[in-house]
């Protein structure tokens, strides 16, 4: 359940590799979990109060921490890529994988409402990939990631790229258990995006400004965008690049490489 926009993630979620899709071997997954809790009871007169103190997103947080522990134990650096649709997430991912796959073991989880298109693009690069189709849901959650990780079975000392559903609102509320969250904005969007969608920028560690090759043709003010983003999150680290021309990707690559060497 998404508390942000009211979408429901029920039984329409599909988690599959491109090979599964080929075989049309599609499974449905149920998402019922039993949780046991102990509560203290206090009695006052004839009334009984049961203290619950439960976060509405509690189930997601628990599973996110489990995913985080799994990745930590295997030295897998998990990146949660978030942005609005069309900012170039998949193109940046493709470019990064192409340029670094000789040096780094990559695994990819693709999240979209529908289609295998993105997974097919990644599989074409010979990178292990699982596609999550969220159906009605507008975001990935930690339960979907947990199942996708089991399916991918990533090796130790690798990088797991998770491409979230294109949406600057809802994914901000769902911890997936990632090591870092990377928000991408592109120069074809408004430079005030960080103020319009502060939650996403507040919850991210890295901000990539993509499509800088188009700057001469647009009114996008890079410094202004960065200043707005820093108001929300002064600790944000920025990379300015173009996934199309490769301009500025070196800094992003060297940062990425450092993460699994540590």
């Amino acid at each position: 359940m998404c508390t942000t926009c009211g979408c429901s993630a029920t039984d329409e979620i599909k988690i599959q590799s491109p090979e599964d899709f080929e075989k049309l071997n599609i499974h449905n997954h149920n998402h019922d979990h039993e949780h046991s809790h102990d509560h203290s009871h206090s009695h006052s007169g004839s009334k009984t109060i049961i203290e619950i103190e439960q976060d509405i997103l509690y189930a997601n947080q628990l599973l996110a921490e489990r995913n985080r522990g799994y990745c930590l134990g295997k030295n897998i650096f998990a990146v949660n890529l978030v942005s609005s649709p069309g900012s170039g997430k998949t193109s940046l991912l493709e470019k990064t994988l192409k340029d670094l796959k000789a040096e780094i073991n990559f695994y990819v989880i693709e999240g979209d409402q529908q289609t295998m298109n993105d997974a097919d693009r990644i599989a074409a690069l010979d990178i292990p990939v699982v596609q999550i189709n969220t159906g009605k849901a507008c975001h990935l959650d930690s339960d979907m990631i947990s199942k996708a990780i089991m399916k991918l079975n990533p090796a130790s000392d690798s990088i797991l790229m998770i491409e979230n559903v294109g949406n600057l609102v809802c994914p901000s509320a769902f911890d997936l258990g990632e090591s870092t969250r990377v928000v991408i904005i592109s120069t074809t969007e408004g430079d005030d995006k960080p103020l319009k969608y502060p939650d996403m920028f507040s919850g991210s560690n890295i901000c990539i400004i993509n499509k800088i090759d188009l700057l001469p043709y647009l009114n996008f003010d890079v410094e202004k965008a960065k200043e707005y983003a820093r108001r929300v999150n002064p600790n944000l680290v920025f990379f300015e690049l173009s996934a199309t021309t490769g301009q500025g990707t070196e800094q992003w690559y060297s940062w990425l490489k450092k993460q699994i060497l540590n």
Partner: peptide
């Protein structure tokens, strides 16, 4: 006037208790 801050509270979305 600095923007560097840590949120102390305000993100709560919680069921505290039920009574019968």
């Amino acid at each position: 006037k600095g923007y560097s801050k840590s949120i102390l509270q305000g993100k709560e979305l919680r069921v505290k208790s039920i009574e019968f």
